[in-house]
Design a protein around this nucleic acid. Structure first.
Lengths: 137, 137
DNA sequence: TTGCGTGCAAAGGTTTTGCATGGCA
DNA sequence: TGCCATGCAAAACCTTTGCACGCAA
């Protein structure tokens, strides 16, 4: 990973600028489209999809896929060495569809447990806990 | 959960019959459609999607979503009463597609943790851990 | 008889692709 | 100058929905 794209275009630059202003937030491709449209400097959606894909490959942003029916969301991860990258878990309510983002040390430990006891390297970015949220219980 | 559907239609019956013949295999909605079409007894795709959804709700089959662009796949899980069934977690390898069933007290404790600390009632039947298995690491 | 299940067709929504144009190096 | 990136439109894709008809209980 960390394969830089060949060209440094204006679109790539402003997209990165925007992503840097919302670290830790989860935004969709549609959010990005809307943001630049409302700024008066729209970017083609294919460009946005293609740039986001590149940035994921480079490790600059993370991509979260919740399920097949909701759009994928992206999160700025940082451009330095990301040894300190935060792990984010997701809980999705089966009833109201609400998505909850969790940063929790205890949950992070299950990754280590799965690896040491079950020989399985958990990918938290792809893993979603299904169940019932507080309001729907 | 485990809410039986009200009617026992012919389509539901043959769909279940088919699923029972491929336990442990991962099949897509399109696979099911094609199977019955080739059998000469086609079933409408909306029926298939709706029945599969019901069966997931009832816990008879599991649904696995790899990502947003590939079709979801389903796996027969069994119809025994799940009232006293032990809790079973699933790990799916993103690379080879292998599915691992886990019975583990430590993992079960995360359900309690999610409930007490995050107000979220985990549904283990629907939750899949994605990552890499031992062979693919 | 009641109302759920079915099936066709069409919509829905996200993501990808074709292709001509424009811009970076 | 040589490619790559862009952007528009349209396609591709899986899945869901509307609606009339049929069938289970």
């Amino acid at each position: 990973m960390a394969v830089r794209s060949k060209y440094n275009t204006k679109q790539r630059e402003v997209l990165l600028d925007y992503l840097r202003t919302v670290p830790g937030e989860h935004i969709t491709a549609a959010d990005v489209c809307r943001y630049f449209r409302e700024q008066g400097t729209p970017i083609g959606q294919s460009t946005i999809y293609r740039q986001l894909e590149s940035l994921v490959d480079e490790g600059v942003i993370n991509k979260y896929i919740i399920d097949g029916t909701t759009p994928a969301c992206f999160e700025y991860a940082g451009e330095e060495s990301h040894a300190d990258a935060e792990i984010c878990f997701h809980c999705k309510c089966e009833k109201c569809g609400k998505l909850i983002h969790l940063h929790c040390d205890e949950l992070e430990s299950i990754g280590a447990h799965l690896l040491s006891h079950h020989g399985f390297r958990l990918n938290p970015m792809r893993t979603v806990f299904y169940g019932l949220c507080e309001d729907c219980m």
